[in-house]
């Protein structure tokens, strides 16, 4: 798993993630995402969900992927904090992500913050020796 840190942002939450490759960096985004919502690091993996998203650009793939997490929270009260598997492939149409995440409903956790939506604000995906991703989420 990669690393991440939070940056100052006036109205919202901004984090930067470093991973050894795209898949590692996307998985680490999930970690940072849930740190905003709940302080605990451990969420029991009681419920498993498969997420499939595809997009023309990598940035849109990230946007759609993290918005899936927002959706599962609003629709099914789920905190899908554990990334069991995450794969990103590329073809002529763009990118495809398929992931298996597990977690639990939020009822037994101290929810501190609600993430209302993903944004493109300040979003960056830099691929070099490793991958660096900057994300701002709307809270």
């Amino acid at each position: 798993m990669g690393t991440y840190r939070f940056e100052e942002h006036t109205a919202d939450e901004k984090f930067i993630v470093w991973g050894k490759d795209l898949e590692d960096a996307f998985s680490t985004c999930v970690e940072a995402f849930y740190e905003i919502i709940i302080p605990e690091e451990k969420v029991q993996g009681k419920i498993t969900k498969n997420i499939e998203v595809s997009a023309r650009r990598l940035r849109s793939l990230l946007y759609d992927f993290l918005n899936e997490l927002v959706f599962f929270y609003d629709d099914q009260d789920l905190l899908l904090r554990n990334v069991n598997q995450l794969k990103i492939t590329q073809d002529e149409k763009g990118y495809r992500l398929s992931a298996t995440l597990s977690g639990d409903t939020h009822y037994d956790y101290e929810v501190e913050m609600e993430i209302k939506n993903m944004t493109y604000s300040d979003m960056e995906i830099k691929q070099d020796a490793g991958v660096e991703i900057t994300v701002v989420v709307d809270i």
């Binding site: 946007y63 959706f71 209302k116 939506n117 493109y120």
Partner: peptide, 20 residues
């Protein structure tokens, strides 16, 4: 609430795909 956010997000993405 979440409904409005999702509408905004859905169309932002659709417009992005429509006008690359």
């Amino acid at each position: 609430r979440g409904l409005g956010h999702q509408v905004a997000s859905d169309f932002l993405r659709q417009m992005e795909e429509e006008y690359p």
